[in-house]
Design a binder for these strands. Sequence first.
DNA 1: TTGTAAGCGTTATCAT
DNA 2: ATGATAACGCTTACAA
Lengths: 371, 371
Amino acid sequence: MTFKTSSLAARETGARPTARDVAALAGVSVGTVSRVVNGAATVNAQVRDRVTSAIATLGWRPSIVAQNMRGRATRMIGFIFPDLDNPLFSSMIKGAEDVLTRAGYMLIVGSSNGQSEREMALIDLFGQRQADGLIFTIEQESHPAVQKCMAQARFPIVMLERDGTPAATVSAGADHFQGTLQATRHLIELGHRRIALVSGGRDNRVGRARLAGFRQAHEQAGIAVDDTLVQIDSGTAGNDWGLRKTQWLLAQADAPTAVMALGRHLLKGVLVACKRQNIRIPQDLSVVTSNDSDLAELAEPAISVIRYSTYDLGRAAAELLLDQLAAADPASAPSRTEIPTEFVLRASCAAPPVHARAGAPDRLATNTSPR
Amino acid sequence: MTFKTSSLAARETGARPTARDVAALAGVSVGTVSRVVNGAATVNAQVRDRVTSAIATLGWRPSIVAQNMRGRATRMIGFIFPDLDNPLFSSMIKGAEDVLTRAGYMLIVGSSNGQSEREMALIDLFGQRQADGLIFTIEQESHPAVQKCMAQARFPIVMLERDGTPAATVSAGADHFQGTLQATRHLIELGHRRIALVSGGRDNRVGRARLAGFRQAHEQAGIAVDDTLVQIDSGTAGNDWGLRKTQWLLAQADAPTAVMALGRHLLKGVLVACKRQNIRIPQDLSVVTSNDSDLAELAEPAISVIRYSTYDLGRAAAELLLDQLAAADPASAPSRTEIPTEFVLRASCAAPPVHARAGAPDRLATNTSPR
DNA sequence: TTGTAAGCGTTATCAT
DNA sequence: ATGATAACGCTTACAA
């Protein structure tokens, strides 16, 4: 007969108490302790009280790790985002958290930094940790190795702001197509014929949807799209990408009369570029951005935005995940939640300057700024 | 003799393979599998190869849950923040993640929504999940029940942007005292005598440090502080708190000539209030805010800010936690990392209007706005 | 060098 | 109604 750790020992050392300690203190067996905490009907009231007070005395809480060993779900959801240092992430994670907390889940977060290697490492790690599901904003949708990794995952995956793939068919995203379509249409109706589109997302749904909306608006108006005005970047460009792109666009011989800088971090660059070159919004250049912000609202003039709720996006992703978790059938059907977008017209949009419409060579020549 | 799950079964069903499956496939014992994956020196090269390929065939990864059961650290760090839907959270979590990932840890996040009950529930949950540590931005530093809960936690806690408490003596925070001191001094030097301080944090270090810096600057200049100009809020006020407070301050008979709105979310309210009442910055009112942002930088005029890196704050908290985790002595000494602040002077600060200095009753009377 | 078996903290099955 | 015990997947001391 071996000497076992007793509740006495547990109380003396700082060691975490176990059900065995509780059982010893209450003078019952571990099975009974388990029955009490799990609310089994078949427990004598007196025994229940003894156990309950022993639990309180020792401050015992069942080990979730041990419960997981027994096959219980970990109730942990992974969340992989290209860049946690992004205000959009804040509201998305909050939306997801609000939904998942209510259902008893917790979120584990990881930043991929846009690297596929890291995405795969994180998926693998979540697997080892037995996560129950994953909300994933993949960097490159078409990356085969990452897709393979997703396909092998033993948990459901919801794509956030990305398209479903063969490996993960459930997705939540904003309706960038409609938003961009409306905004582009509005600019065209104002008389713009040379509209620039600046956006991230070469290899993901967001960029594709924006481009599609942009093209459709042009097509419906019978206007050809000048591809030099379409600047869709791949990957996480530097912080001053918006600035450099705008400067480049404005330096073209036949510069755009309107720029749609779609992505919250791009607006700053556009405004700085305009300020430096003394370009007036909207007289010289109309501006549209996406993701409403204090800056867009309070800039002088206020900037028109394609607005949508990233909080709702996070909620939607979480809800889709819960649906899949609840579904008895593991191979659930493809599904998608689309969050509506709204074009908010502000003072930054006006008719193009007359000389541009008349085909004047270069507005900047007329309006040289002192650097 | 019972029939055991074999590698065959594991490959046929979708069940996660175990070390036993690997062992069976490789024709070795589970102990050997463990030795191989843990890089034990004493393994025959041929055996190692057989095991390695069996692992690859089955796609086996050791279960972290089972490893935890054996006493291995979970390498999970909790992170409790009052409001995940806050851009500051993004950069803090990113800073922490960068440090912790390198050390093999993952982050579990939870939003307390400013509720002490939820804070305690989360701490408790992290305990049950056997988290190795916690980074915590408590809502009310002095809350006794939460402190007790912290004291009972079996893992080290680092306070983020909060003071150490008896229950958790390690903390990381920005040097709000210096930042506020400098900014206030500058306003005083410009001639301001009635400066308003608007900030959150009635019961935390941030608010206290700001108030202390504010007071010290006044004291050193021999100026009395008018307490009606000091508006330090408790808890997470509504989104329009900055607006309402500014409107209230400007409506006072002896309105301030400068306002320090310390908190990123407050600037918008100040700017809106000024716009609505046709108050010019800085001619009528000087403005200082905290936390640099695109809005502060690009507002017209640009707004002076007390700047500091929330990313560094997250890093610092994580590094302190790693220090504690590495320390053999569990009862480590109190320690604190202070992140420097910097007062960035922009166009929003100027000398107070003449009539205010002459003691004119109400600037608004001279400058009535249409609405 | 490799196999065997105990044990981590639960839960569930089977006796009593 | 309650106790004893096997099992979850892994690591490790000990045996061979």
